Amino acid sequence: MKNKKRILKIMSIFIGIILLYFGFLQYKISQYSSTKAPSNADYMIILGARVKGTVPSLALEERINAAARYLKKNKNTIVIASGGKGPGEDISEAESIKTELVKRGINESRILLEDRSTDTYENIEFSMEFIPKDAKIGLVVTNNFHLYRSLMIAKDEDLAVSGIPAKTPLIAIPKSYSREYLAITKYYLKKWTPFF
């Protein structure tokens, strides 16, 4: 009986710690959900997301919409569309971003393509090759659930950028947030534990 109570107590503590941890992650994510971007940025990196054939997923479409709104108000900002071609994608995510921005009235001469990356780390790393040397103000555009980790990765690369949070489609919230909790945990482990 005592052993059973002890096990239940340990399990309760363990579950409590997990809930507190996920609460902390949600707090960090929510801190970046209403970030206000500075005007007249020199460049903008739009992080890729899934493309279905040639059509952007709902999450990617929200990123494109958020970027287009900013670009229409800030005519001198150049765009780095970032994302390679993955399984089930007929074109690269970068190409899909460019096509959709042009449809929304953004001149294609403003859009540079980074079409090799396969994850957020590579999105940031490979996009840095396209940043003008004299650029001072930079932005990263991604869905609100993804912005915290993206900006942390950029900071690790000594890239000082602000964020533009795009909406997360309602249908994608459960899957997106649960995957992001795991991705942030992996990021923490990779950053703070030498053997990971």
Rank of each mutant, 00 (worst) to 15 (best):
N3C: 10
R6T: 08
R6D: 14
R6G: 14
I7K: 07
M11L: 12
I13C: 09
I17A: 06
Y21G: 03
F24Q: 08
Y27R: 15
K28G: 12
S30Q: 15
Q31T: 12
Y32P: 12
Y32I: 11
S33V: 04
S34T: 15
S34I: 14
T35H: 09
T35P: 13
S39L: 11
Y43G: 04
I46V: 11
A49T: 10
V51N: 00
G53S: 14
V55K: 12
V55P: 02
V55Y: 10
S57G: 07
S57R: 02
A59W: 03
R63S: 00
I64V: 02
I64Y: 03
A66W: 11
A67T: 03
A68T: 06
R69S: 13
L71M: 10
K72F: 14
K73R: 13
K75C: 10
N76T: 06
T77D: 04
G83N: 12
G83V: 07
G86T: 06
G88L: 11
G88Y: 06
E89L: 08
E89K: 06
D90T: 14
D90P: 10
S92W: 07
E93W: 00
E93F: 01
S96C: 08
I97Q: 00
T99C: 04
E100P: 03
R104G: 02
I106P: 02
R110H: 04
I111Y: 00
I111V: 10
E114W: 07
E114K: 04
E114N: 09
D115V: 10
R116W: 13
T120S: 04
T120K: 02
Y121A: 15
E122L: 08
E122S: 09
N123V: 00
N123I: 01
N123S: 01
I124A: 10
I124F: 12
F126H: 03
F126R: 04
S127C: 05
E129G: 11
D134P: 08
A135V: 03
A135K: 03
A135F: 09
T142C: 01
Y148S: 09
Y148G: 04
S150M: 12
M152R: 13
I153G: 00
A154L: 12
K155S: 13
D156S: 15
D156V: 15
D156K: 15
E157N: 13
D158K: 13
L159S: 15
A160V: 12
S162M: 11
G163D: 05
G163S: 05
P165H: 01
A166K: 02
K167C: 07
K167Q: 11
K167G: 08
P169T: 00
L170V: 12
L170W: 14
I171A: 10
I171F: 08
A172D: 08
A172K: 03
P174M: 11
K175V: 11
S176W: 05
Y177R: 14
Y177D: 08
E180V: 04
Y181P: 02
Y181M: 04
I184L: 07
Y188G: 08
Y188V: 09
K190G: 05
K191L: 01
W192G: 09
T193S: 13
F196K: 08
